[in-house]
Design a protein around this nucleic acid. Structure first.
Length: 278
DNA sequence: ATGTCATTTGAGAAATGA
């Protein structure tokens, strides 16, 4: 199963690139962020003609997330991250697709820091950590993917020192990400690239694309039921004319034959009537 | 502080977010 995540930075402006990319790679499930469009304005029909059903949580001007699926229904689980009903920003959508739970997320950027925006980022991250904990424990295969707006380590950025004060590198944000990973999730890019990870974002300013001055802030985390066969970044999308400032990140996943994290193999299970005997 | 890109407000240029 090929899954991918892409912060498209305005889905309407990026529609041609998106359709072209979907046609070339045919991912099974796609998470989109920064739609910058209301739900009614989302190009649902164009995507359906390309073979994709969509579940959209849109918002005027800012934010907006969506899940796309090819050949399977999308069963909505949640259109908001639990934990704060007063939070109206469209940053989270969760759905079941072909027996797998997908959480598409767009974490707050948090700049400038310190300040209220950074506080919001950390609160949002804490709510996500709690949700991830519940999803990990539910026993189903789960994929958490999106724009996490966090550079996990200094190895995930071209030159950390010039970004040291940025919200994306703050120790509190890095710890929040590490705390989610600590639950057991596998970072698909990290697991397949080890020391030399690819970047996923290159700021529009200061010729950062031309200089490959990038950051790794888009992440795909998978639960223990999955084997990550391969993962990467479709970097060429960032080199196109009028690109998003992010490139798509992808992972080729396979369900393990024996989901050990869920339950033991049949031969190892103790029949209930014998287990109850003293 | 700057840069880039796009949008919003409100009617041109400035602020906002990323």
């Amino acid at each position: 199963m090929l899954v991918a995540s892409w912060n498209v930075n305005n889905v309407i402006r990026r529609l041609d690139h998106l359709l072209d990319w979907l046609g070339r790679y045919r991912p099974d499930v796609v998470a989109l962020q920064e739609l910058k469009a209301q739900t009614e304005a989302f190009p649902r029909d164009a995507l359906r003609q390309a073979g994709y059903e969509s579940l959209v949580v849109g918002q005027r001007t800012w934010n907006g997330v969506a899940l796309l699926a090819r050949g399977h229904d999308i069963i909505e689980v949640s259109s908001a991250l639990p934990g704060d009903t007063s939070d109206k920003q469209a940053r989270y959508v969760e759905a079941a697709i072909n027996g797998v739970l997908f959480a598409c997320l767009y974490l707050p950027n948090g700049n400038p820091q310190p300040g209220p925006k950074f506080d919001y980022k950390l609160r949002w991250f804490d709510r996500l950590r709690k949700r991830a904990e519940g999803l990990w424990a539910c026993g189903e295969p789960v994929v958490l993917l999106g724009d996490w707006n966090v550079v996990p380590t200094d190895a995930d950025i071209y030159k950390p020192d010039t970004w040291r004060d940025d919200a994306l590198l703050q120790p509190e944000a890095r710890k929040a990400f590490a705390d989610v990973l600590e639950q057991g999730w596998t970072d698909a890019i990290r697991a397949t690239h080890h020391a030399q990870v690819p970047f996923t974002f290159w700021d529009y300013r200061r010729n950062r694309w031309e200089r490959n001055a990038g950051l790794r802030i888009d992440h795909i985390l998978v639960s223990a039921q999955f084997k990550v066969n391969d993962a990467g970044v479709h970097k060429e999308e960032r080199g196109k004319e009028s690109p998003s400032d992010h490139a798509p990140v992808w992972a080729q996943l396979e369900l393990r034959r024996t989901p050990r994290a869920t339950r033991p193999a049949a031969k190892d299970r103790i029949p209930p009537h014998r287990a109850r005997r003293p």
